[in-house]
């Protein structure tokens, strides 16, 4: 018992283990200076992430440093940066894990830089939007949100695409992708993996519509399976798997070797859930129905 307690205190120690140099990319559109690297000395405690290091710099050394972050626990996907030679989430990368005395922090490559470490992801989101990343149904009454009832899907059918639904849209995959390094219009691993995710969803009937968007030069044919996107993905989504399976899906379907998936039926009965007494009603919708 005493041993365990001692260990716990040592894990959560506030003791400074070493001092590292943060070499941070600085650029501001307003000061007229070209992009440059600036060094900061940061004392490192056990468990400190690169994001914590940036917080330390901003709080104690230089309040002009800009970077994007939100949840600080690898869920929101805001803090993607190029840290010591790989695109990583700053909040998911511990400084000590890097085993380096100099931590080089740059904005994600292959995106325009807005300021310091903040990349412009608007193209990235536009590419995502362009592959129709939502369920498309043919029935007129199910096109509205929400549909009239739930669609029935088995757990097996769910697992065929669930992995890709874990994507947080952090943008690391496009920063790693060699094709995106030169090709501005290539849809990129994220959008293509999402296209596969919706194509493979039994609740979706939009394969033909998405096919038109994918059978273009900037579609999955620009991918040559270098696999870097999957290597940097912080959520294990494996976009490279999605893109290869998407190519197979399109080609085998066109050759008639693969049948379209069966379509999930609409449940005939409403689920019989009753509100327990004493539970208040949900608040009104904040987004108005069209």
């Amino acid at each position: 018992m005493a041993d365990q307690k001692e260990q716990e205190t040592s894990v959560f120690t506030e003791e400074v283990i070493k001092e590292v140099i943060f070499r941070v990319h600085r650029f501001s559109p307003d000061d007229g200076k070209p992009p440059r690297m600036q060094d900061y000395k940061v004392p490192v405690k056990r468990g400190m992430t690169v994001l914590d290091g940036l917080h330390y710099i901003r709080d104690n050394l230089d309040s002009t440093l800009s970077y994007r972050f939100s949840c600080r626990m690898a869920i929101c996907g805001s803090c993607g940066m190029f840290i010591n030679n790989l695109p990583r989430l700053a909040c998911k990368t511990q400084i000590l894990e890097l085993e380096a005395d100099t931590i080089e922090v740059k904005p994600l490559p292959n995106y325009e830089v807005i300021k310091d470490l903040v990349p412009d992801l608007s193209d990235f989101f536009e590419k995502h939007r362009s592959v129709m990343p939502y369920l498309i149904r043919e029935e007129e009454e199910e096109k509205i949100d929400p549909p009239t009832n739930e669609f029935l899907q088995t757990p097996d059918e769910l697992e065929r695409f669930l992995q890709f639904a874990y994507c947080t849209k952090c943008g690391l995959c496009l920063a790693g992708c060699p094709t995106v390094a030169t090709d501005k219009v290539f849809l990129g691993p994220m959008a293509l993996a999402q296209a596969f995710r919706y194509n493979s969803d039994t609740r979706d009937q939009g394969f033909e519509k998405r096919l038109e968007l994918l059978c273009v030069p900037e579609g999955p044919w620009r991918c040559h399976f270098a696999g870097s996107c999957s290597e940097v993905c912080p959520k294990g989504v494996d976009p490279a798997l999605g893109v290869q399976l998407l190519k197979g899906q399109i080609v085998f379907t066109k050759l008639g070797l693969k049948k379209p998936h069966k379509i999930a039926p609409l449940a005939t009965e409403k689920p019989e859930a009753k509100r327990r007494p004493g539970i208040p009603e949900a608040p009104p919708r904040t987004v108005k129905k069209e």
Partner: peptide
């Protein structure tokens, strides 16, 4: 007002050869 445009920061053809510490598949690609 002396502002300069956003740096594009695209790696270009250099990015085909090297873009960080990736595994062998990336080098098999090039």
């Amino acid at each position: 007002n002396g502002t300069i445009s956003k740096p594009e920061n695209r790696l270009g053809i250099v990015g085909w050869f090297y873009a960080g510490s990736f595994s062998f598949e990336r080098y098999a690609y090039i």
